[in-house]
Design a protein around this nucleic acid. Structure first.
Lengths: 247, 247
DNA sequence: ACCTGAACACCGTTCAAGT
DNA sequence: ACCTGAACACCGTTCAAGT
């Protein structure tokens, strides 16, 4: 039965009945990370769910796990290349593109560490994205070293925020870290840490260091919007100063 | 010979001659990460360099690798608890504490992903740090939800920046990714990406997405300082507005 | 209390061989 | 061209047993 020829490909045997390609592998990998998290991801497990020998992943995708992760990042950030309405000001275009970035990562929160904490993934070089940001900044009047700094402020500050926001909790919390930590936060000493204690009900599990759930469970929308406002306003101010100080 | 009693501890046998404790294990782990990187870190390798059975690490440090990583993070960020000169304004105190944070992480750049992309590590809860930031923001006039957002803007934006800055390059770059990527950046098409191409010499390897080395090799000092300026200025402005709009 | 040794259930990656 | 199966050299974690 495996010796019959496949009508589409003309191949014989197992090779014909599998017909896997890179896109399917990458999509299956995303699904697996979405479900079990990055720490639990495994090449062998992926091969198992695809019903295939582990070696085929290496054949299709390249020699290392990092290659697969780079593909995963590329697929998830691909929509950053979508068009913008051209009548928007440079400020509005920047706002849109970084809101869009955050939205995309939020659809796959467990992939966030790949984008934020691995160079081969965050440098997967969505050139359209880079061009969009650089064009907006050039229009604002940035050039030379100040353009470089402005770009890094945007990516470092805003993508960095999203990375922190979605930092994953312990993989298998059988030891009850979340519960233990929650209790520890609730019982912070009023005399040693008066300001912290005073605002405990408002900040508990809702600020970055004293929390046991991440941005997938607790909203950081208003904090992100504030950072976005502050950065865009700050760049607007400095773009003007810069325009004045040059010739 | 192993049956002689140890004079200090009174223990007999191997137990007496080893005398390991948690601090030594954590320090050895930091050293190992500093040298080989986080991706190459291994509990068994750590046990090997300590000349000890793998099980002793679990005995001293807790049941999981994440527990050890949390200890590593705690040791590295411990100096955030150092005192400040009290005559500084809230702005200067915030500047100092985040410059200090960045400085500490830069001394162990390969540990950065632990602080930025793992909740159990970044939430190791240096309470003195949190208190310092909250006290400064309270003095500025922030309260309630705006206090929460201001705190998250600072940690998310600035610690997030440091995480992105120090995102590690591929572990074992035997396939020459760095070289390949560098060439790809150099040959970016002028017609498709005019703004990017125009500033290539200034941005190549020096902005976040189009780079093949991280902040341990290439300085992002001026970009970080700009972000710090923008955030502090933005918070100063909003603290005033907030003071006006309430009662 | 502190440590060893062995065991269990996995990994990532490579490679010859098959169709 | 695409896939299998087996092999190599590792892992993290647990547990009974030793001193």
């Amino acid at each position: 039965m495996t010796s019959k020829r496949d009508k589409k490909t003309g191949l014989r045997g197992r090779a014909a009945t599998v017909g896997l390609d890179k896109a399917q592998i990458v999509n299956a990998a995303i699904e697996q990370i979405d479900q079990r998290g990055l720490a639990a991801f495994s090449m062998r497990e992926l091969a198992r769910t695809l019903g295939v020998s582990p070696a085929v992943i290496y054949w299709h995708v390249g020699g290392r796990q990092e290659d697969l992760f780079a593909e995963v990042s590329a697929v998830i950030t691909a929509a950053l290349a979508d068009e913008f309405e051209p009548e928007q000001s440079w400020q509005e275009r920047l706002r849109s593109v970084f809101r869009r970035y955050r939205h995309l990562v939020h659809q796959h929160p467990k992939v966030a560490p790949l984008l934020g904490a691995q160079m081969k993934s965050n440098g997967v070089a969505n050139l359209v994205w880079v061009e969009t940001v650089l064009a907006a900044l050039a229009e604002a009047g940035f050039a030379g070293e100040s353009l470089r700094d402005a770009f890094n402020v945007l990516i470092g500050g805003l993508s960095g925020f999203v990375t922190m926001e979605l930092a994953p909790p312990p993989a298998d919390d059988s030891s009850g870290w979340q519960q233990t930590f929650a209790e520890r936060v609730e019982s912070i000493d009023a005399e040693s840490f008066p300001h912290t204690h005073a605002v405990l009900p408002l900040i508990s599990n809702r600020i970055f260091v004293l929390r046991w759930q991440n941005g997938a469970d607790v909203s950081y929308d208003s904090s992100f919007e504030l950072l976005l406002d502050i950065i865009i306003d700050g760049l607007t101010l400095r773009a003007q100063q810069q325009g004045v100080s040059r010739r």
